[in-house]
Design a protein around this nucleic acid. Structure first.
Lengths: 338, 338
DNA sequence: TATTAACACGAAACCGTTTTCGTAACTTTT
DNA sequence: AAAAGTTACGAAAACGGTTTCGTGTTAATA
């Protein structure tokens, strides 16, 4: 048990002043070669490392970036975190991950906590509850304080800040395109309620693509679930009452569940009915048959968000100017489509 | 853009001293009702929140706990984090997640970084590279400094600290038990090299169970992969050369891959060949057929680790006494077994 | 030799809190 | 009315660094 050594300790031991030690360890020109050598050697010997907290307090920069995500047990978000970590670490930043657990309250608490000096900037994705309440005062408060902020994936135009999203509508378009090009006509969509920004955009892209390919839009072919949970009965009645030959799902789980159901109805995938799911995760790769998916490029998104944030953090904010970068989704073809 | 307000600002504005403000906000008995009311009202009006960094520096407690995991895009680890967050947040602690990315270097860097004042204690799981190198000096250094530490899942007995693991051998035993009780005789094991502590323990449990049920151990029925990656050719030759009616896999991916392969060989699951996989994740639930799994109870593990850590952090460390709690795995029966 | 410049270092302020201790102004006791 | 005790507050040190500025000593210049 050897406690941490401080500048003061070194100064006392070597009979110099604290300032001399500090400068010597930063290799300042002010200090003579001899003294520097002596101090640096001593510091190395006792494994001196500056106290982050003290440095943060003095510099008013923590080199930490705070990330608030709705759920950590979720493949997409973890890939985003991986991207953030990758970029941030390379730039010498640490990443503080907090989870809102899809709740408004925890989102507020976490943000207030981190905002009180713990971080230099935020990267966040909105919780569904926040999106439902449509209340963004906690976020406005943070940005008003001049704390840089980047929102990703689940964003809102009620807040003025940098954003990075993927073009969800385009993703849906790609999927429909794939379906029609392989001869499908009755294309269904399984999605969530519109308050989730992603659900809305994807539905929009789906509709746009249909009209682009001159396929009449049938509202009965859109199954709208109230949440992200799989509601088995809704799926059952949908597939029993509707005649479809292709299904686009806004997430993997919906797609896998639907495929199982259809499999049990003795239809062949992809011949009789094809499937495409959003967010290319583990499930898509290992599904049976493997699921054609629209990749969201989470890691890239994370890197981009980190890049934008650190850019803002490190420049003396002249003009408040915000941009949103839109990533292009790509179609990963697998066995669930022709 | 309204910058953060400090104690000093309040003191100046209300023409009292900083100490008075500090005490008033803590509702100290020392300060008169009138002054307290005045100061508290002012603070609320301007939304004063103490600066965490300054408080940490002064109190020498950060109320942060650092978590180092090998990989964040991994279901098991994220459930552990969820458990940690759950307990820690309830106790007023923040969670700092850093990812070693299965590498020794990043593990060292992250630990050194966090250890310099950013956190009150560590919860960690070893990276595979660290386990291979068998070098734990970076960890010893941290514990030597008196920083509390809890290791989970991938632990080592080379370090003296609290630990929480699940009984991997028992998990394997449960699986084999299930197999023999449903009449299986040729029970295979697909695992990784022994340097991964979990692989080793699970193999041990497998062997113990076989001998317990008087089934001769055939080394040829053990497929040992060099890493966590799926090596398709190894699987191929294994299933072509070996006659088996049950397979225990040390992770989901191996199991899913094997099931697919076997499915392609026109064997029925579970009648001709049954499967059980370790770590009950998304893949197991949504596999086709769904995979019987040994649940590792990640969330519980996280909660327990957090509980142990905070216990240590908050008690003035009298005697250095460490314990390791062993969680019991459970078998989640699904469609891949009889 | 007197003046100036360069060098090498230390004192002290500061970041935003917490906390101990001292004390002026009252109030109570005898 | 003097002594003692309360009350309500402020000064200052401390946490562990960084940084500005001042200064004594030596070396270079006139």
């Amino acid at each position: 048990m050897k406690p941490k050594i401080t500048l003061k300790d070194i100064a006392r031991e070597l009979e110099v002043s604290i300032s001399t030690v500090s400068k010597a360890l930063k290799n300042s020109e002010e200090i003579s070669r001899d003294t520097k050598d002596k101090i640096q050697a001593f510091a190395k010997l006792y494994n001196y490392k500056p106290n982050n907290i003290a440095v943060s307090l003095k510099n008013r920069r923590t080199k930490n970036i705070g990330v608030i995500i709705p759920d950590i047990v979720h493949h997409f978000f973890t890939t985003v975190i991986r991207g953030i970590e990758k970029y941030a670490n390379a730039k010498g930043y640490n990443v503080l991950v907090c989870v809102s657990n899809e709740g408004y309250e925890r989102e507020v608490i976490n943000m207030e906590l981190l905002a009180n000096g713990s971080i230099d900037g935020f990267i966040m994705s909105l919780s569904t509850e926040t999106q439902q309440k449509n209340d963004y005062n906690h976020i406005k408060e943070v940005t008003d304080q001049g704390i840089p902020m980047v929102m990703f994936d689940r964003v809102t135009d009620r807040i003025n800040c940098d954003k990075v999203v993927i073009d969800d509508a385009q993703g849906a378009f790609l999927a429909v395109k794939k379906f029609v090009e392989s001869g499908k006509k009755k294309i269904a969509l399984i999605t969530t309620d519109d308050y989730l920004s992603v659900g809305k955009d994807r539905t929009e892209g789906y509709k746009k693509a249909l009209s682009h390919y001159n396929i009449p839009l049938e509202e009965s072919l859109i199954l709208k679930l109230p949440s992200m949970e799989v509601e088995a009965s809704a799926f059952d009645t949908f597939f029993k009452t509707q005649e479809v030959d292709a299904v686009l799902c806004v997430n993997e789980i919906f797609a896998i569940h639907a495929m199982r159901l259809v499999h049990g109805m003795n239809k062949r995938i992809p011949e009789d009915i094809s499937f495409i799911g959003f967010t290319d995760g583990l499930l898509s790769k290992f599904a049976m048959p493997s699921l054609t998916a629209i990749a969201q490029h989470g890691e890239l998104m994370g890197e981009e968000a980190a890049r934008m944030l650190i850019e803002k953090v490190e420049t003396e904010n002249e003009e408040e100017t915000f941009s949103t970068t839109v990533l292009e989704p790509t179609l990963i073809e697998r066995a669930s489509t022709l």
